[in-house]
Design a binder for these strands. Sequence first.
RNA 1: GCCGAUGUGGUGGAAUGGCAGACACGAUCGCCUCAAAAGCGAUUGCUCGCGAGGGCAUGUGGGUUCGACUCCCACCAUCGGCACCA
Length: 949
Amino acid sequence: MTIQERTARPKRAMEQKWQTRWETDRLYRSSVDWNRPKHYALTMLPYPSGDLHMGHWFAMTPSDTRARYMRMKGFNVLFPMGFDAFGLPAENAAVQRGIHPARWTFGNIERMRGQLRSMGAMFDWEREAVSCEPGYYKWTEWFFKKFYEAGLAYRGEAMVNWSPTLQTVLANEQVIDGKDERTGQPVIQKMMTQWFFRITHYADELLSFAGLDWPEPIRTMQTNWIGRSEGARVIFHTEEGDPIEIFTTRPDTLWGATFMVLSPEHPLVARITGKAQREEVEEYVKTAARKSELDRTSEEQEKTGVFTGGYAINPVNQERIPIWIADYVLISYGTGAIMAVPAHDERDFAFARAYGLEIRPVIQPDDVPEGFCETQAYSGAGRMVNSGRFNGAISNGEKGRKNPAISAVIDWLGEQGIGREAINYRLRDWLISRQRYWGSPIPMIYTEDGNILPVAESDLPVVLPEDVQMTGVGNPLRQHEGFVNTTAPDGRPALREIDTMDTFMCSSWYWYRYLSPQETAQPFSTEEAAYWLPVDVYTGGAEHATMHLLYARFFAKAMRDIGAFDATMAAMQARGRNPKVLTTGEPMLMLRNQGQILGEERSGHFVRARGRWDGANKLFADEVEVIDPAEVANGDPMAVVTSGFPTAEDASSGVVTGEIVKRTENLLTIASPSGDLKTVEVIAGARVIIPDIPGENTVNQLKHHLEIQRMSKSKGNVVNPDELVDLYGADTVRAYLMFGFDWEKGGPWNSQNIQGVVRWLDDVWEMIVNIEVTGAGDPAVERQIERRVHQTIKSVGEKLEAFNFNKAIAELMTLKNDLRAAVRDAKISHGAFHEAAKNMLLMMAPFTPHIAEELWVYIGEAYSIHQQAYPTYDPAKAAEETTTLVVMKNGKPIDRVEVAVGIGEEDAKAAALASAGARRALDGGTPRRVVFIAGRGDLNVEPKVNIVV
RNA sequence: GCCGAUGUGGUGGAAUGGCAGACACGAUCGCCUCAAAAGCGAUUGCUCGCGAGGGCAUGUGGGUUCGACUCCCACCAUCGGCACCA
């Protein structure tokens, strides 16, 4: 070994050199090649919010690593990228800063393109798609039109958050505590006619995940979201004869219905309300309109409701029962009305108790005495009672037809013409209308004589006009006459639909557009689709579990049913590929979710603020002094700030001490040693002393405490990837994100731990570039290195396939440690070292593509490393000769014995019992039992012997 | 509230029911240096013991098992989603 003159590991310049070269060589352009197996790797596309943040790197670079690995394993890989570019933040920017949504969006996209390139990912930029470009949203509109023509889109009523002040609809996130977040004015719930997609048509199909490798929790969440329940629809009538349809999963309890409850929005409410109750009912309806659905259905809420004065007739026994309204019944679920059976339903029970309504048991459990319904509802099995002809029928606690009582009652309801068997879903149809400007137009027109017609295909896209006034009041499209006024096919004037589409619509089909983003004749190219579809692996955040991923599945099924895949399937057939992968209507075969990167915890400045008290909790400060952490001897800054003051918050002293937990401009919130929060207003011209920062200090330099929470600009806890890339290089940032976290879990950012991957890459560089390996080498050490290389080839591959990026890098670090020890001890020849280094670089290439390429070329191998195959695992070379037999006493290890791999049960037990640890533990006695656990040579699992005493 | 997940050293995290803490960060000590940083070497879950060697430890409390971070039951805490943020 010879130490040469050291060359420091280059970072940004070297990385940019390779990025340019790869781009020039079109290394990552992917094209159809029927002679090679394809792999479509997709990662969720970003919303162009301004800057790429750590979360994007965390989502995309591991996905890139896995895509690169698949490429080295021989797949023809497609790994595209684009922008989900319509949405609310662009409108907010327009209203708040007067910048046009389009300019804001495209400016951000341009910026983010550059940031995405710095990752060194293998994105095929020729396939980039941007959802707010007419070439893209033409097809979003086209899908709407096709769905409409297929009966999958319709007009219906839905509640919106209506701001009377702004004359506009607000998003849920814009409503805080029932008030508009911007103006603080009240927001009401209002019914509005809007466009829906009939996703419920596919409810049953969406419950099937056959052939999909999706995480179990996601499948469970989707199943619960769809919420299929079996039961019956039953028609009650008011005394006046108006029908009220209800859905129940418990028709066997119909005889226990002692009242009905309508949702406050139910259309019959006004009709049945009696004169005496009118005022109270109207007041209640108004109050309910101010509440969110979440509040209304919360079990913690006190059940509220009012009597309408009306009565209904129970069709099974002709009983007259009162009709109430209550906000725990939602108009959007079932029929918006329920029969209330307080004896056998928790919520009905709580309501009946609160308003003194009758509770009548109709299911009698076998082993519980009479009066069992006095303290809580009973929802278990039993015999029907108080139910006329059905008395004695067994209700076995099962749902639907599996319950004999329910089954018998359903049949009887049908015979009597009172009701029928029915299935209800919690899933609601997809409301796609948005009363916003920055979205894809809905290609529909309204004629003078009241017809609603789709825009002709030749007239698509309906282009979003650019010359609008964004004021935050009203809908800008309504005020745009050139947009609103159009002509019907018969030449007469007509009005355009001014609602635009939910942005989930744009993101429900983008992976098809990636196939051919320049295509003008159809949404995607048939030839590309026949080769690449479906997506093989989709990665993204688990927060999209239900909505985006259900919409994506719905879209694929709807596309299938309108024939959008017919040509593609024919082309597949012609190529000898089974088109069945498209007939299932499933867009992605495999799904994996990453966790979230959170902000790093940071303590705030510990300060002494001096000034004048204004009441007990507020101080006007003319001086704020930060305690220098370096001066804190015992590590407790709180003790230092309080020292020297008799009482820290002594009213006469005019001093507040403690940690800044929050700062808004010149208002500080300070947590005092006792834990009390004090407000300190730093007056203009106050002296601010921060020892760390030389010169004159200002209040804006004071740091407040940061909790571990989502990174966001407003919280001031954003870690900027660009700065880290400048400092360490993209390889290091990529590797750290993959090594420092469990990818599926995420976690708080830690700026210290990145040193681990810095040293890893430094060591690899040092070993290959700065040390000349000479000498003969030690055959035993060289054999051991070869063994470790092959074990690592296997484990890194397995771990990457399983998305265990942190474990894969740990394996690579371990291999580096072993190789470095061999080099340091001069136990390896140049040839053996070269072979090991070559394999190690090939394994590193997917993770750290730039340094791998640089060193690959440095050791004299042919460019590019990214066109090489992943090394082949040789079990013979990986095999161990000996292994450690673990001797245990009652499951706890007490000794270890070196034995041959594959040792048999008898030999292992004998060796274990002969060990020093076993003799000590047994102390001459005999074990009660001896258990042998065989080793697994292929998995490097050691054999064990458990001695039970 | 409902649905889903998570909980392991000072920190990030490893462990098909079979050696808990791999791989790292940090810390401590030593080497190098005029010094510092970097680098190199060693130690590092807690605890009793001079030592050999014990005991205790995976959110809490139970259970199953020769053996439980892992499986089951109950509870606590935290995170994601709840239909107009994306």
